[in-house]
């Protein structure tokens, strides 16, 4: 049998499989929602999946690569390679609209523009509380439970919450 034609599922189908892999730290959103899958291409019978890191030192990176490989192998892909792409650097602007809604439902305020790592000066943030929707919130700490999140508190409902930082 010709190995090159035996099993080359369509790229769109592979994207849909990747869209079912949850982020290891925020399992309500998928790797595709997160915007870290940059490219899926066939090179003959070799599948190349290009992934970009969220943060340089994100400990989930290893798990993410492992999960991608495991999922694709379960779908019958035998020859695959994961490529790391740094540039253009990942930005939270790539988190899908669906991903943002899922983050909010999960209790994590999705990223808004205008924080330290974005172009331009620091501006006051309008982070709305994912529980009660109030805009009267305050930052407790620049860094939350993971590098990608900051720690906030709602001054109306008084609940603390995670804010997914904008980079």
């Amino acid at each position: 049998m010709d190995a090159a034609t035996i099993s080359r599922p369509a790229v769109a189908e592979i994207w849909s499989w990747l869209g079912e892999i949850p982020d290891p730290e925020i399992p309500v959103i998928s790797l595709v929602d997160l915007g870290i899958i940059r490219d899926v291409t066939w090179a003959d019978d070799l599948l190349e999946v290009t992934v970009t890191p969220t943060y340089s030192g994100c400990p989930a990176t290893g798990v993410i690569n492992f999960e991608i490989e495991r999922s694709l192998r379960e779908h019958g892909i035998e020859k695959l390679v994961l490529k790391r792409q740094l540039s253009p650097a990942w930005t939270t602007a790539w988190i899908s609209a669906e991903g943002r809604a899922k983050l909010r439902d999960y209790g994590i305020a999705p990223p808004v523009e205008g924080t330290a790592a974005c172009a331009g000066a620091l501006r006051p943030l309008e982070v709305s509380c994912p529980r009660c929707g109030s805009l009267r919130t305050e930052r407790i700490s620049q860094f939350g439970s993971t590098p990608c999140k900051a720690h906030f508190r709602c001054t109306d409902c008084l609940e603390p919450f995670d804010y997914f930082k904008s980079i």
């Binding site: 890191p53 943060y55 340089s56 740094l86 540039s87 253009p88 650097a89 990942w90 930005t91 924080t115 330290a116 790592a117 620049q142 860094f143 590098p147 930082k165 980079i167």
Partner: peptide, 12 residues
Amino acid sequence: EIAEKASKEVAY
């Protein structure tokens, strides 16, 4: 590429 990635983190 490394500088572009790292600068976003270092801004924080």
